[in-house]
């Protein structure tokens, strides 16, 4: 059990896909304008990660080495299509605001990266925990970034006004703000790791 817990922990903290590995940044920045969007994207990506990890790890012995990447892509694309259709049917508003970034999960480096680096080499159960961990880590990072952007850029958290007299800085919900937030956050994470290692 401890072993599985380790896989979970790894994805959330030690190898957080966004801050530590800098994978899957494109959707992270594009959809993090509000917490709802960020969370929705995170859940969608987690589902795809979980699904592709399970399938990849269970068929890993049957796939010829040479064409494994195309096979992974097909598996991932299948799950992305499922997410796309489900979201369109049950969460039309979310689907609209995430736009082309739902199909773009297919080229999200986190998903393919985990399939190649982990699921194709480990058992099903371990891969489930790995996918779950990475998914949660990704979702947390997304929620963090979108919370910052929503708070500064719109003056709200989950749609609720925080301080009445605060005048939101529009820039944070626009493109420059996203790049700024991620830059500063990476800087902070670097700073904290530096201190952890030197102390």
């Amino acid at each position: 059990m401890k072993k599985f817990f380790h896989e979970l922990n790894k994805g959330i903290f030690i190898e957080n896909p966004t801050f530590r590995l800098a994978l899957g940044l494109c959707p992270t920045l594009a959809v993090s304008t509000s917490i709802v969007n960020g969370f929705g994207m995170g859940i969608a990506a987690t589902f795809v990660l979980l699904g592709s990890n399970v399938i990849v790890s269970s068929v890993r012995d049957f796939i010829p080495k040479k064409i494994r990447i195309p096979c992974f892509i097909v598996i991932i694309a299948t799950f992305v299509t499922i997410v796309e259709l489900v979201m369109k049917a049950y969460f039309p508003a979310l689907s609209k605001s995430l736009g082309i970034f739902v199909p773009l999960i297919v080229v999200n480096c986190v998903v393919l990266g985990r399939a190649e680096a982990f699921a194709s080499r480990h058992g099903v159960v371990k891969s489930i925990f790995d996918g779950l961990g990475m998914g949660i880590g990704f979702t947390l990072a997304l929620v963090l970034i979108s919370a910052i952007r929503e708070a500064f850029g719109n003056g709200t958290i989950l749609g609720l006004v925080i301080v009445r007299s605060f005048e939101p800085a529009l820039i944070f919900i626009l493109a420059p703000g996203a790049l700024l937030v991620i830059g500063v956050l990476i800087g902070i994470v670097n700073y904290m790791t530096d201190r952890c290692y030197t102390a």
Binding site: A175, P176, L179, V184, G187
Partner: peptide, 22 residues
């Protein structure tokens, strides 16, 4: 500054460029 080196400063520069493109 050391923590900003590499990727972090690249994003800051990108942000400033994005401001200019606005």
């Amino acid at each position: 500054p050391r923590p900003m080196k590499g990727m972090a400063i690249a994003f800051i520069v990108a942000s400033l460029m994005s401001m200019a493109f606005m």
